[in-house]
Design a protein around this nucleic acid. Structure first.
Lengths: 151, 151
DNA sequence: CGTAAAATCATACGATCGTATGAGGTCAGG
DNA sequence: CCTGACCTCATACGATCGTATGATTTTACG
């Protein structure tokens, strides 16, 4: 980003130089004003396009970035590994989340209050280092924390 | 796209008009040449930025670019079936949802507004007959609508 | 017994989600 | 030209989610 600004500054300097040079031509050889303006306009248009491109195609990262870091992960079918030190209850909640249930539905399933489910969920999210249930499901699948699809 | 060209033409016309007007001022009131050039440069820079924006953020499906409902496709790895008659854009949104992105992140990724993403999501949910994104991910995985885990 | 881990519950708040409605704009095909 | 499918965007609203904080109870263990 800072680099873009610097390059922009350089371009402006170059522009000024060209301006002086063109001005010299203008007064010395009677270059048409329209041509002069045209050059400046063309240059600035291209420059603007470049700036726009830089600004919009720079750090649009902000994308997936869910990198867990499992190594062995044998798990034929159901060992259900536990890389994140989840408590049994948290693991249960995670599995129910992965099945598409809402917190209220999970609370009903486990016969606990909504608050409890949310507490478990929040804790397991922080343990798994994710912000959303969908991310948790992704990570859980990659690490074999939840049963396999039976589609 | 055609619209962009037309607007560009209008802008050029306006520019010419302003040029004539400025030219009048220039000769009538001895407006500084530097100011004159500055105005033109500024205008063209902004115009160039706009053009660049339009050109680079138009139909660049950018990131995922998953084949919609084309048949030949039949990739050896990702047939990516489509049992729900999802539009290409809806399919894209579905995949990004399955990667754990929030609506805002999806909007940034696809360079559209939050509203658009929510509309696509709502539509695809009703097409898939689910109420939550996690359910949609489940169904999508069972039906091969999203790329396989590569864990 | 004392303690630590786990489970339970509550309240509050901001963020995000999902739906509904309406309104253009684009584009392909009849 | 008109139409339908698609994409885009806005606003509003209620529901759900996720976090933070604090508390009580249960259970296992030394």
């Amino acid at each position: 980003m800072a680099r873009t600004v610097i390059i922009f500054g350089i371009c402006m300097a170059v522009l000024v130089g060209l301006l002086k040079w063109a001005e010299y031509l203008f007064f010395a050889r009677d270059l048409a004003l329209e041509a002069y303006i045209g050059i400046v306009g063309l240059f600035c248009t291209i420059l603007g396009g470049w700036i726009g491109w830089k600004l919009t195609h720079k750090n649009t990262g902000s994308v997936p970035t869910i990198g867990p870091q499992n190594e062995e992960f044998t798990s034929a079918q159901f060992p259900l590994t536990n890389h994140f030190n989840l408590s049994p209850r948290e693991h249960e909640v995670l599995i129910l989340i992965s099945e598409g249930l809402s917190y209220q539905q999970i609370a009903d399933t486990l016969n606990v209050s909504l608050s409890t489910v949310k507490t478990h969920a929040s804790n397991l999210f922080s343990k798994m280092d994710v912000q959303r249930r969908t991310q948790a499901v992704m990570v859980a699948q990659k690490n074999g924390l939840i049963p396999r699809m039976k589609g």
